[in-house]
Design a protein around this nucleic acid. Structure first.
Lengths: 208, 208
DNA sequence: AGTAAGATGTTGCAATTGCAACAAATTAAC
DNA sequence: GTTAATTTGTTGCAATTGCAACATCTTACT
């Protein structure tokens, strides 16, 4: 039994999936399931089969981000599936069930303060996961330069602007990127000299 | 208003905090709040003030893991506060409210399948956060050796054994640690030659 | 205002790492 | 069972990084 349905009877499960307007899909081996989950906030689980969340980088290399087996739970918020570099591939015939997030949190279902509270907790948790995913995305870059650029990219995308205001000191940034402060300082200097960025105090302007 | 109480009236909030048997505590500047949250699964939020979650490493260096300001939500599951290296310090006078996790998920409150489902989602999300925290803990180590040792430590603690069975290939391990595979291979050889580990196929024995 | 504490900039140097390239071993596919 | 594909082991070398040490600048505290 999936962790998703712990303590829920089979009958209740079926009724729940019905009221939440879930849909199930079966995918043949080596097909992408993105067609079904794109542009939609969803929670899904694997009824049977095996899938991989992979990242396709610019060089054409694929990295396995996550493996999903029977009863695995996945979703836009849980796995950063809104990242355009990611794809989800059924590596063998796989049946999944999808629940739209909007259906899950419809107001009539979360009318009691307790429900609402738990729903809020869920959202706080998924936000945390996103933060962690972002940091992991940065930390897995090989060089200090690439870590900096990834950090700039994420913050810039979030704010929709090429100007970034550092929310903490450069010392803290080095700690966040898990690199030596002086080495980071050196690399920032290189980026400045090569014309990629401009720094005034805590305001960083991206020139690319 | 905290994200925790979005869509909940002040009156309902107070009633909720009462039924969940919440407790509030006020800490003076520069005191640790661990006395209140140790050995207990909790969810808390900051009513006013400012706290830091810090890590004290063996060398006595402190790293800021997270900053908590007014309305910030924290907790054992959200922030890995069960890690003995972590401490939470009120950097100014801070008032917090603590809810015991056990009270939150008491069976009578999650009796409906829908509630139970959302509660399950919450647990899945917090498990993910733990996984991500573990990986971040590994990725922030400076050298390949330290990354390997941290990985071994985490897996070994989880299984309560000095013998680790790699759940994937060494190629995948290098990818998980975000290091070059050949460089990792070199470091594993060093660890073997220095008598720290023994490797037979995918079984790694820790000799320390 | 004056002092202490902390943040930032800089640099030489040694250690670690990524990269490339290849052989050997293992696993998967037909 | 043979062949192809993938994984693993190895090594030289160049590039990147951490470390240490110090000067300068900024901020916080009284």
């Amino acid at each position: 039994m999936s962790a998703l349905f712990q303590g829920i009877s089979l009958k209740s499960k079926e009724h729940l999936l019905y009221t939440l307007e879930s849909h199930s899909f079966t995918f043949p081996k080596n097909t992408s399931i993105m067609t079904v989950i794109k542009n939609d906030n969803i929670i899904g689980f694997v009824e049977y089969g095996y899938m991989q969340i992979i990242r396709l980088d610019a060089n054409g290399n694929t990295t396995i981000i996550e493996e999903l087996t029977e009863d695995s739970v996945f979703g836009t918020l849980l796995s950063s599936l809104n990242n355009p570099e990611y794809d989800v591939i059924a590596k063998e015939e796989t049946k999944i069930v999808i629940i739209s997030y909007d259906n899950l949190i419809k107001e009539e279902k979360v009318s009691s303060p307790y429900n609402r509270f738990i729903k809020n907790l869920w959202e706080i948790a998924t936000n945390k996961i996103n933060e962690k995913n972002e940091r992991i995305e940065i930390l897995t870059k090989k060089t200090i330069r690439d870590k900096l650029l990834e950090y700039f990219k994420i913050v810039s995308l979030k704010n929709g602007a090429k100007i970034i205001y550092l929310p903490f000191s450069f010392t803290d940034l080095a700690s966040y990127l898990a690199v030596d402060r002086s080495a980071m300082s050196r690399e920032l200097k290189n980026l400045k000299e090569e014309g990629f960025i401009k720094i005034d105090n805590k305001r960083i302007t991206l020139l690319y």
